[in-house]
Amino acid sequence: MGGRQSTKFPDGAPAGGAGDAVSDPVTESATGSDCLVRIRGLSFSRGAQVIFDQVDLDIRRGAVTAVMGPSGTGKTTLLKLISGQLRPDAGSIEVDGEPVETLGRSALYQLRRRMGMLFQSGALLTDLNVFDNVAYPLREHTKLNPAMVRKLVLLKLEAVGLRGARDLMPSALSGGMARRVALARAIALDPMMILYDEPFTGQDPISMGVLVTLIRQLNDASGLTSIVVSHDVCETASIADYIYVISNGQVMAQGTPAEIAAERSAWVRQFMDGLPDGPVHFQYPAPSLADDLLVRKVA
């Protein structure tokens, strides 16, 4: 099995008050309906590199769950596994009771209509303007008349504050605006869940603040379930109801922001506090400096 705490199960306690969950043993499916995404024994590797090794994760309905970890720990891979873009080597991934890893193509596509995903780059279609980008999923999947589509698109754009930018092309948008447009597109079909892939990376403080507020607001206003994958500790912790910290293919810690803040493990402390040296060494493994300097280059 995975790390020390990887078999724990977050119960249905409200945000910030799940104190006794830390010591709970595994209570499989005790709160089944409350749990939108249930991952059990997930293993995934790319070539020789093991990305996940027997990981268990639960995403509670209606909550903002954050998945944090250093770069390259497969956080984006986790989102792709949940959305069925990748298939796990072992283990099961259930989304709303449906086993994603075994779904056929059309069932998977049906399921994806109820999911939205916000990509790091926004992933807007570059040959369509903002309005058409947001309208795209509506036009693809519904038979609404143009007037209705227009109304819906303007409402979604209003929600992200970009109704005025509807005629711009994606190339004319700043990174933060592109992400907001992508967010409007992700909620166009009123999904049950939104996956955020590094929503805060490379944002200036203002757009960062806008995004943080938007994620929380959208989640609470429309009864969404949100999964935020990020390594921006403060911003993520400020909106998350529950946090998983993963590294080296295992869940290193989990709990409410308060619990994570109280976590004593040296590794978690180094990650959460951003210490330059600790269990993860500042130095890449190398022979001692003195040895290295004394060695003459052999011609």
Binding site: M117, A123, Y136
Partner: peptide, 9 residues
């Protein structure tokens, strides 16, 4: 990937 996530192949 974005298209795929919008359930468009």
């Amino acid at each position: 990937s974005g298209l795929e996530m919008m359930a468009v192949d």
